[in-house]
């Protein structure tokens, strides 16, 4: 069974069956990358361009590793060293890359909908590696995959997404993925960082982080995206850390164990304290490992969907 889409633009566009297919494929690849010889020939002769118009370290590394483990040829393009600064449009840039006969494009861009825009204009499989504050589908898939691995399933689980929901592409994609897999979702943070109409997406809204922790099975703690905030949303990082930061003391007040996730990079001491981030409850590094397997699965499935 192939994927229902030839691009991965967002979780909104894919079905629960697509997600299950990605998961079972990722299970196989996870087994592969734990072998002594971690490489398979699945994408030999496929050229993939990683086009990053925004800074990224881990997402790009994770994609690059996934591509190389699948034996794809990889080229990297980042905006900092590119012609984008010379005023070239997104379309021109990508068309130039495609003229070099590239089969797939993995793109990160600051504008919501940029990969959708590209998909209308070019012929290549596109994987959205984060479009502004819209979606980050591979992150949501690796997050839900990690929950499935840790808790044995996603359906019926309670997941609280905590922090800067407004400037987070991880939040929206996670909400869609979790709901498609039957989980219950809550968002929690200072109200100024929650979109006013977020409740209409069928999520619970909570302003008190302790109550959110008490409700959930899994807390997915988001990074405070200071770089994406164009104006003031809360008074200070100190106050945020005091009232929304998650630390050992908050977890000790619960009468249960919960799982802690974070998409990275962590602002240690702001949204997450080291005594939690490095504890046995945190699956943050599992997320990173699963990220490679999930991305391998997506690239493999899209390459086959195209053929």
């Amino acid at each position: 069974m192939p994927l229902s889409q030839q691009h991965l633009l967002g979780i909104k566009n894919i079905t629960a069956e697509d997600i299950q297919l990605i998961f079972t494929t990722a299970d196989n690849f996870k087994e592969v990358i734990n072998r002594p010889i971690k490489k398979v020939p699945s994408l030999r002769d496929i050229t993939i361009a990683n086009v990053f118009f925004e800074n990224s370290t881990r997402t790009r590394l994770s994609f690059e590793l996934a591509e190389k483990r699948l034996s794809a040829d990889v080229i990297n393009f980042s905006a900092a060293s590119s012609s984008v600064k010379k005023g070239e449009t997104l379309l021109d840039t990508v068309n130039n890359i495609l003229a070099m006969k590239v089969d797939m494009v993995v793109m990160r861009h600051a504008s919501p909908g940029a990969p959708h825009f590209l998909a209308r204009h070019i012929r290549a499989n596109i994987v959205n590696a984060g479009d502004g504050t819209h979606e980050h589908p591979t992150q949501a898939l690796l997050d839900t995959f990690s929950i499935r691995e840790k808790l044995g399933g996603v359906a019926g689980k309670k997941v609280a997404i905590i922090g800067d929901i407004m400037h987070s592409r991880v939040a929206i994609s996670n909400i869609f993925a979790l709901q498609k897999l039957g989980a219950e979702v809550m968002v929690c943070g200072p109200i100024t960082l929650l979109p006013k109409y977020i409740g209409a997406l069928g999520v619970k809204v909570e302003l008190d982080v302790q109550k959110a922790l008490a409700w959930c099975d899994v807390a997915n703690v988001l990074r405070i995206q200071l770089e994406r905030q164009q104006i003031k949303y809360f008074p200070s990082l100190r106050e945020y850390a005091l009232y929304y930061g998650i630390n050992r003391e908050r977890l000790n007040r619960l009468d249960k164990e919960i799982t802690i996730m974070h998409p990275g990079p962590i602002n240690r001491g702001v949204e997450l304290n080291s005594d939690v981030a490095d504890s046995e409850h945190a699956i943050i590094l599992d997320q990173v490992e699963n990220g490679v397997a999930i991305r391998m699965a997506i690239l493999y499935l899209l390459a086959n969907a195209a053929a």
């Binding site: 909104k12 919501p112 909908g113 979109p195 997406l201």
Partner: peptide
């Protein structure tokens, strides 16, 4: 309305875009 590019509502929340309320 600063930085807003579309109506503020459910759709702006869905699309991750700044809204003009």
């Amino acid at each position: 309305s600063r930085f807003g590019v579309m109506n503020e509502g459910v759709n702006s929340a869905l699309l991750g875009m700044k809204g003009v309320p």
